[in-house]
């Protein structure tokens, strides 16, 4: 594939296009004007992931914005996947920000609805929800491919974007999930990252439906992995995180170890096993490792999963 055939030419797009098994990570910006936190996380992940998601006020808690954080990450050697939620911006801001991000060299964008305001630290905020994530994907695709703003006005220089979105294979109604993914692909999604997978049989069932619709050939699917730091975290996710499906045997396996380092070691071991198993699933093009506030675990997991060195795809 020549450079001109890429949609954006980002490292992530090139790795996926090469057929290599991609690895993405995640970095939550700090809740203060402290750029050094992002720098440190970027340096930690450099060389271990192909790109890193920069969350956008994740769980509706105010943090350094994803555009600035993404820029800092790229300055420190890791390509950014800038997350963009429909919760905080209307269509003017979402277009302005993507033009801004593009001028700063950010190419990967992840289009999200966003966690509801009621989960965050400003539950009294007005949710914008001018567009939904599918509208957003379509708007960015039209900006990139048609050089058109959502209103139809034309622009001279289009943003180069590799457009992603999220999908939760474990949400209900289950029969709709694969079909709704098709809708996202039709809107313009180039890659998807799934919700963290703990229930592998259910994920495989979903992938079967995805393959039956031929969607795995139209979009790059990165399977979501969250290493479990301890039994407390597993229980918390099972009980309180919306859309999370954590089977009891996973919790039992972690709880079977002593608290602290042994549970952490088991969590990492489990993550490695899951990555290896998911890599065997037809249609899975990579993994997205979301080590929530545990970024230090990522290099070890990636190495143990046999995913080093990361491909160089200049």
């Amino acid at each position: 594939m020549t450079a001109t055939e890429y949609k954006a030419g980002s490292n992530l797009e090139k790795v996926l296009a090469s057929g290599a098994f991609a690895v993405t990570g995640e970095c939550g910006p700090p809740k203060s004007a402290d750029g050094s936190v992002i720098e440190a996380k970027a340096k930690l992940l450099k060389g271990y992931v192909d790109a890193v998601n920069i969350t956008d006020n994740q769980t509706a808690v105010v943090r350094v914005c994803s555009m600035a954080s993404g820029y800092v990450a790229q300055q420190n050697g890791v390509e950014a996947i800038m997350q963009m939620t429909c919760r905080d911006r209307n269509r003017l801001a979402m277009q302005a920000d993507i033009l801004g991000a593009s001028t700063l060299g950010i190419k990967n964008i992840l289009c999200l609805t966003g966690d509801h305001m009621s989960f965050g630290n400003h539950p009294q905020a007005k949710g914008v929800h001018d567009l939904d994530a599918i509208n957003l994907i379509k708007m960015y695709k039209d900006m990139r491919d048609e050089k058109k703003f959502q209103c139809g006005d034309e622009m001279t220089v289009a943003p180069e974007l590799y457009i992603g979105c999220a999908e939760n294979p474990f949400a209900d109604p289950f029969e709709l999930r694969a079909l709704r993914l098709r809708k996202k692909i039709e809107a313009g999604a180039d890659f998807i990252q799934t919700q963290c997978i703990f229930n592998i049989p259910k994920f495989k069932q979903w992938m079967q439906e995805v393959r039956a619709l031929g969607l795995h050939k139209e979009v790059k699917i990165l399977a979501g992995i969250t290493p479990i730091k301890g039994a407390g975290m597993a229980n918390y996710m099972k009980k309180f995180v919306p859309g999370m499906d954590v089977p009891q045997e996973i919790i039992d396996r972690i709880s079977g170890q002593e608290k602290g380092a042994p549970q952490q070691a088991e969590g990492k071991k489990l993550a490695v096993e899951m990555i290896k198993e998911l890599a065997e699933v037809e249609g899975v093009a990579g993994v997205h490792i979301m080590a929530v506030e545990w970024e230090v675990a990522v290099p070890e997991i990636v190495e143990a999963a046999g995913l080093l060195p990361r491909p160089a795809v200049a």
Binding site: I134, A171, P173
Partner: peptide, 12 residues
């Protein structure tokens, strides 16, 4: 979230 294109990932 006033979605127009189907349920988000939080539907259970």
């Amino acid at each position: 979230k006033s979605l127009m294109n189907g349920p988000c990932g939080g539907s259970h």
